[in-house]
Nucleic acid binder design. Structure first.
Lengths: 153, 153
DNA sequence: CAAATAGCAGAACAATATTCTATGTTGAAG
DNA sequence: CTTCAACATAGAATATTGTTCTGCTATTTG
């Protein structure tokens, strides 16, 4: 099940993260190997789930998504039923790009990307009408200084 | 420069977001068109910068990145020089996956992915020794409930 | 109504991915 | 030290996909 990842595998992953559209020949050249072994390694890591979805990063602003909020949530309810409903609500909403359950004082943090402040309010109203939360703080992003999905291999 | 995006373009973008490895024929079938026009639309949107990097999403935990922190930062310095140094520090560190400048009380939020709590502390010490910050709060993620880079088109 | 333009389907061609085979390399057992 | 087995690799062969080209259709413009 679990796959041993060696230095060559890491180089391949780094190359794929940087540009998944590269040809196998290019990757092979960059990692100092050739086509077939690179392809076999990629296949193994895909099968093992280490390599997941292949996707494109879009320009959010150009597509009209001009507002990004980080939402800090405190709740008084900690039973399984409430949590199930809450998770379902988050997963079903496409505006929610990230959701984490936290340790400590604040219970959850969300990253929500929407067209504008009004769209955020619509989302917010819909969420709190669906599940009860104790306290919500929204942090509005003014500027995306850095954004990457790449892991530092 | 700016490109008009119609319904077909949106369908293509949605398809690419969901799986960038699809063949043009598949995408064309799904959006109800054929190869050539789909390819021309994709090329236009790439040239316009709407479609950016093509990448793969990796399993962070399988690769040993088991800790994820959200870091809330307040600063007392707001001059351009300090900000420049701060941005440079963030951009040069691969652990920092996201960085936003915020409106309001808290000045910055970071998303930092590292191997473990010790690695976070190393990062934290290095950061505060490089730039002066007034107040730092770290929120530790216990569970990644949801994570996507897809925009809700 | 004619001419021009833009977008599209389908074929032709080029490039790339995937499979297959043979060769080399490493490690362990005799 | 030699031999065998298991594995990884390079290079060729094949299949699939990307890209360009050509002519057609529809829509717009004068």
């Amino acid at each position: 099940m679990s796959v041993r990842i060696d230095a060559t595998d890491r180089k391949i992953l780094a190359a794929l993260q940087a540009d998944a559209a590269q040809s196998l020949d290019e990757i092979a050249k960059n990692v100092g190997s050739s086509k077939t072994p690179v392809w076999n390694r990629i296949r193994k890591m895909r099968d093992a789930g280490i390599i997941g979805q292949q996707t494109v990063l879009l320009d959010a602003e150009a597509l009209g998504f001009e507002a990004c909020f980080f939402v800090l949530i405190r709740t008084s309810e900690h039973d399984a039923e409430w949590q199930g409903k809450f998770l379902k609500a988050l997963r079903s909403r496409a505006e929610v790009q990230e959701a984490h359950r936290l340790a400590g004082d604040i219970d959850y943090i969300l990253k929500v990307r929407v067209q504008n402040a009004r769209a955020y309010d619509t989302f917010y109203q819909a969420l709190i009408s669906e599940v009860k939360v104790h306290n919500v703080t929204a942090l509005l992003s003014m500027e995306e200084i850095k954004s990457t999905v790449a892991l530092p291999l």
